[in-house]
């Protein structure tokens, strides 16, 4: 049985009791549906992560225009819910 409370915590969601019940029901139904894949034998099949076949695309060690644009930096910070000077403000991380 899916431990909705634990999953919600991993996903960083608050959860009410009513929501817990609802998720339990809905997620179980979806998981029952996707269990269909177990009908297929995939023993010697390689997994596909994406389809273009490109592997390890490296860029030059340089900043792009977006990082250099002062206005963009300012506009990014404008969207911050809490900030101080040029910094994002967060609650204490280390006790």
């Amino acid at each position: 049985m899916i431990d909705v409370k634990h999953i919600a915590k991993l996903a960083r969601f608050g959860l009410t009791e009513k929501e817990e019940e609802k998720f339990k029901k809905e997620l179980s139904a979806i998981l029952d549906f996707v269990a269909k894949l177990n009908e297929i034998d995939t023993k010697n099949i390689e997994p596909t992560a994406q389809v273009t076949g490109t592997i390890n695309v490296f860029g030059n060690d340089e900043t792009n225009l977006i990082c250099e644009d002062k206005q963009i930096k300012e506009d990014i910070l404008k969207n911050a819910p809490a900030k101080e000077g040029r910094y994002f403000k967060v609650k204490r991380v280390l006790e």
Partner: peptide
């Protein structure tokens, strides 16, 4: 499992 089915 799903990634393998994706290959198929």
């Amino acid at each position: 499992k799903a990634q393998k089915v994706r290959t198929l």
